[in-house]
């Protein structure tokens, strides 16, 4: 029986959705949401209201979190506060991600009540490399370890989670490596990338991409928060889309750029603050990444409802994008050609 769940990162869209879904579960006594900033975005966010979630404003990088955990008798911690792009600076992002996780885990370690910790991670920990196998399982040793940005933070976070699991073997820890999030309200470097009118791609490369729909992320996190499923799990929609396929489905034009120039473009975009194209993103855009999700399916006896393609289509639909115009053009041409 889960009594009190603590959810971090509730001021961001996906964290708020997880908190509200947990709050809607009658089996859970209390839901406490924490974040560095108040969840202002929620009011204009529509559906994702926090429900009966109690919000506590805490700077995650400080030991304050320990007081909340001990004072409120938290028994389940759902750590959603992983930032994928620098809001202010890269070092602030690293502090938020890594120091925040360290403080949280330190607090959990001291608590006698906590018995379940669920951590959001990312498949970016596998990196993207021409030397790596085509499909990563949870046990695959990464060939080229990402050494910058978001992916590096996630690797360090996972390292601390493993250390915590070793020291507190009585606490069940689940680490969920999510593929790129996709859905109507997801705001990530990748969704912003696809919203551009023309999409720069790396010349001569067509990466394999995988997406997981935000609804499935919420469901997985909620199930992990109430069930005992320790371990590391890849989470992604079934199937694969090539970048070229995504571009076509979006009805956009690809702008192939030689890979060094793509890096420079990425840096320019980063300095203007439009899109974050870090070196890992460049690697992803060249070599792609696909993960195996059989472990999750076998453990939960459940599969994400959205395949990679369905998640992407849902995203396109919500943005009013699609290949309708190009398809209509071909239909018109075929009408001309076959009529005679």
């Amino acid at each position: 029986m889960t009594h009190t769940v603590l959810v971090t990162g509730v001021s961001r869209h996906i964290g708020a959705r997880v908190a509200s879904a947990l709050a809607a579960d009658p089996g859970i006594g209390r839901v406490i949401g924490v974040d560095t900033v108040p969840p202002s975005s929620l009011t204009r966010d529509g559906g994702a209201l926090l429900g009966r979630t109690e919000f506590v404003r805490i700077d995650l990088r400080t030991p304050d979190i320990a007081q909340v955990i001990s004072a409120e008798d938290v028994d389940t911690v759902v750590h959603m506060s992983l930032v994928s792009e620098p809001a202010k600076s890269r070092s602030a992002m690293m502090e938020h991600n890594v120091i925040g996780t360290m403080q949280l885990l330190a607090a959990c370690q001291r608590s006698a009540m906590v018995r379940r910790v669920v951590v959001r991670s990312t498949t970016a920990v596998y990196g993207s490399s021409p030397h790596a196998p085509a499909v990563f399982t949870e046990d695959t040793e990464p060939v080229d370890v990402p050494h910058s940005g978001y992916a590096k933070d996630a690797i360090e976070i996972e390292g601390y989670v493993r250390g915590f699991a070793r020291r507190r073997s009585d606490v069940l820890t689940s680490t969920l490596r999510f593929a790129n999030l996709m859905g109507p309200r997801v705001d990530s470097p990748l969704t912003r990338y696809f919203s551009q009118p023309a999409l720069p791609t790396v010349f001569g490369f067509d990466p394999r991409l995988q997406f997981v729909h935000e609804d499935d992320v919420v469901e997985v996190m909620c199930r992990m928060a109430v069930e005992d499923r320790p371990g590391v799990f890849n989470v992604s929609g079934d199937g694969v889309l090539l970048l070229s396929q995504c571009v076509r489905r979006a009805g956009r034009t690809a702008l192939p750029v030689p890979s060094p120039a793509f890096g420079v473009l990425g840096m320019l975009a980063r300095t203007t603050g439009l899109v974050d194209f870090s070196p890992e993103q460049l690697a992803l855009m060249s070599h792609g990444r696909v993960v195996d999700t059989t472990r999750l399916a076998a453990t939960l006896a459940w599969k994400p409802k959205f395949t990679t393609a369905a998640a992407f289509d849902d995203f396109l639909q919500s943005r009013g994008m699609g290949a309708d115009r190009t398809a209509a053009l071909v239909d018109w041409l075929s009408g001309l050609a076959t009529r005679r």
Binding site: A134, R208, G239, V247, R248, A323, T326, V330, D331, S334
Partner: peptide, 21 residues
């Protein structure tokens, strides 16, 4: 017509690739 249907699928990205690409 078959060729045009193929062209339509290719242009709309409406085809499948497996996990190896």
């Amino acid at each position: 017509a078959e060729l045009l249907a193929l062209l339509r699928r290719r242009i709309a990205g409406d085809y499948e690739v497996d996990e190896f690409g």
